Amino acid sequence: MTSALDRIVNGTYIPPQRRSGRPLCQAYADESGSAGGRAESRFFVLGAAVINAEEAANAAGHLEYMRGQLGRQPGCELHFKNLKAKQGHRTLAAELLVPTRLTFVAVATDKTAFTRGGTWSHMDTYHWTITLLLERLSWLARRRGRDAELTLAHKRHMKTSELRGHEQLLRSGGGSRAGHRIDWDHFRESVRIGTPKTVEMLQYADLFVSMVGAALNGEGEGRILNPAYISTIEDRIMSTSQGRVCDTGLKIHPKQSIPGWLRAM
């Protein structure tokens, strides 16, 4: 019997490759905004926090330090939405991310650029966004000479079977051109699903992707755009060799929707 994630090449089932023996970099991803076209958010964002496996224990320790600095109880779940912007807790959280060894990667899709025709669905948004995220995570792993592992935060709308089917399509060479640019040799393990309670590194992903959401969709009752979070953590975002974050570690699709403040990064 074949699994849902077995590759299909010319009608032949090929089991997923196991790890190559290279060291690991572990990615933890969450989302901000809605993938549906009727929600108030213009952008749907998937963002990941990436750490080399041997540095994960230090990152977990820093998360506990952040809890203390933010006035939270030891071991509690850190969520951006529970931090008080007016008390400066969200700004402090961004500052506390800077000294970590994490690398952040995000992809944001402007739904208004695709929903006018009526044929673009919320699953189209999700599939396109996660494809571009997988692409960038594979590039980061290749750059480091490592294999990547990805754990996604579980959401109520997420159907595991659809996620598995999309990954199978990509691994078999189908889907969009972006899927063809994923370096599967550095992304051998199947995508996993977890919760911030059981996989606490997902709390870093929550903080980061929510900051990107606040920059693109706004925060608070007035939905005020706040790109200051991104400026604070810019040095922790995946960049080109020239230090460019735009279109690399922070990808906006389509390019026409890139805000001016990001074009300069």
Rank of each mutant, 00 (worst) to 15 (best):
A205H: 01
R171H: 06
A205L: 07
A93Y: 03
E234I: 10
Y28M: 10
L150R: 06
L216I: 07
L70M: 05
E40G: 05
A49G: 06
Q73K: 13
S190E: 14
D110R: 04
S161R: 13
R263F: 02
R181T: 12
G11K: 04
T232G: 08
Y13R: 09
F104W: 11
H186E: 00
R143F: 10
V212R: 01
L96V: 12
A48T: 07
N58L: 12
G36Q: 12
L262A: 12
L250N: 01
A214M: 05
R236C: 14
S121A: 11
N217D: 09
Q26I: 09
L250C: 05
Q256A: 14
G71D: 09
Q69R: 15
I252A: 02
L134T: 00
G21M: 09
L133E: 06
G194I: 09
P196E: 07
V45P: 01
A39L: 02
P16S: 08
I14P: 00
W120Y: 15
G220W: 09
Y65N: 10
L70N: 04
G243P: 08
G117I: 08
S210R: 05
G75V: 08
T100V: 04
Q168M: 14
A94F: 10
G88D: 11
P254G: 03
H122Q: 14
I233F: 13
V209I: 07
S32F: 01
H157G: 14
G68N: 08
A60W: 02
T129I: 03
G222E: 14
A153K: 04
L140F: 00
D124H: 13
V107T: 12
R236K: 15
L134W: 12
D110T: 05
R7Q: 12
D206L: 07
